[in-house]
Amino acid sequence: MIQRYDLLHRGAGPKGTDIARPAEFLIDSSGIIRWVNLTENIAVRARPEQVLEAFEQGEQVTPQ
């Protein structure tokens, strides 16, 4: 699944194993991606408030 989303971080895990790079996606009920956060610094990731904000903005655009 990590490979399907192209998020593999080769050799970054313990003993050189492959792990996922940090990433956050917000997907609507029809499976369309509405918001993506791909960080360039592994210490800086999306905060819960940012995800909620993105969700609320998405709701305003397409009220259901």
């Binding site: 996922a20 997907i27 609507d28 995800v51 969700f55």
Partner: peptide, 11 residues
């Protein structure tokens, strides 16, 4: 309504 998909780097 929506799915938040989070790839967490931690192991």
């Amino acid at each position: 309504k929506a799915v938040a998909l989070i790839f967490y780097r931690g192991f």
